[in-house]
Simulated scan of single mutants.
Amino acid sequence: MEEEQDCIMSLSDFPEPILFKVFRHLEGAELAKLCTQDRRLRVVAGEQTLWQALALDRWPNATACHHGGDWQQLYRTRARLPNTFTAGIDRLHQLTRQAAGKQQLRMNSDSLPGTAASSSPAGSPLRTNVYGFSQVPYTRIPHMLLDKVMENLFSLCAWSAGRSTARRNLFATSSSSSRDACSVNSSEQAAAAASEMRLVRQDMAWWLSSKPEAVLQYVRRSSSMLDDWDMWGSGFSAWPEVVWRRSALQFLADLQLGPQEGVCPSVTERLQRELAHLDDCIRSVDAESTDLPTPTRPQGLPAKHWWYSLRGQLAGCAC
């Protein structure tokens, strides 16, 4: 009987190559539990290659650069967040890498993520050279990539704002016993979102430091959209797009990127001047129009996004 007990092996007694083969088939939660066992299992289960494979299988475009290259920390952080949020962060980073030349762009209209060849982006018509081969140099222009970046920035920040408002409302209406659990879960998710938003800060700092003219041109194009008046249709037809673009720019300004992130103060000053001009254009349109298309206001959007309140002839407060 004693001999049989001596022959019993624990999981930590197996050779590391065998443990690696077994651990490669485990889910993240199961692998995390092994990290709480004895020291040997914690070392093997904490191997970065295992967590990198798990993370890339769940988030194919993920990068651990904002977690110091720690894939285990990235997985634990992202497991608390919805996939739509993490997908938006990955797409924003992918577009920034393309603009920085760190990812190869195919010379056609579907080189932009999420853009099919049959539906090329507006303003980027297909060109053909003398040999008849398709070539679209417009796909390499930074402002085209920045348009997609700002769309993702708006979605990410609007989600964060809505989540904060929902958390406050739930905390105010829930019982004292459930408040503690709600507060813990919400705090963990808020911390996870803030950790992931560090990558967004790095990317937007790159745009302001390396491609400031593209950002300023984005503001100017937003202003020029308000020059389009459709007298036979809905008036200022571009109004809904200008509204969310202005909010995206406000989210960018709220990041407060400066010299510590490599952004020159003169760039932020120019950005503020361009935003002030855009606000003047928005107020002018509000004063001239009697009926503005009502865009859907994202839940939890801060009150300083006053342009969502305008309905024509200064119906909303612009202060």
Rank of each mutant, 00 (worst) to 15 (best):
P142I: 09
A192V: 03
S187Q: 12
S118L: 07
Q202D: 04
W206E: 00
K148C: 01
L216N: 01
S178M: 14
E241H: 05
D227P: 12
L156S: 09
E188L: 05
C182Q: 08
Q189C: 08
R221K: 14
A166M: 08
A117H: 05
E151F: 03
A192T: 01
A181S: 14
D180T: 08
G132W: 14
G235A: 03
R221Q: 15
A122K: 13
R168E: 06
D180W: 03
F236G: 00
D180F: 10
S237A: 11
A205P: 03
M107L: 07
K211F: 15
V200D: 01
W232Y: 14
L112E: 03
F236P: 00
P125Q: 07
R140I: 12
S160V: 15
L170T: 15
P212R: 14
A214I: 10
R246K: 14
S195K: 06
V200W: 06
S134L: 07
M144I: 14
D147M: 05
S210D: 03
R220C: 07
N108I: 00
A248N: 13
S178L: 12
G235T: 10
A116S: 15
R221D: 15
T115W: 02
L145H: 12
C157S: 14
V242M: 13
L126G: 10
D147I: 13
R106P: 01
R106G: 12
M225Y: 10
C157P: 02
L126I: 10
L208D: 04
L208W: 07
A161I: 09
S124T: 07
C157Y: 12
M150S: 03
A193P: 12
S175A: 06
W207D: 02
W232P: 00
C157Q: 10
A214V: 13
N152S: 14
A192F: 09
L126K: 13
N108Y: 02
T128Q: 04
R168W: 00
M197E: 11
A158P: 09
L199E: 03
A190K: 02
S177D: 07
S119L: 13
E213G: 06
S223I: 11
M150Q: 09
F154Y: 15
S109Y: 01
S178F: 08
D147A: 09
S234Q: 05
R168S: 08
I141W: 05
M204W: 09
S164V: 06
S183Y: 03
M204H: 09
Y218Q: 13
A158I: 08
W206A: 01
L145R: 10
Q135H: 12
C182S: 08
D228H: 15
V149M: 06
E196V: 11
A193T: 07
V149N: 07
L156N: 10
C182T: 01
V219N: 13
L199K: 01
A191Y: 03
S155M: 13
L105Q: 09
T139C: 14
Q202V: 02
T128G: 03
M150D: 10
L170A: 15
S183L: 08
S177N: 02
M204E: 04
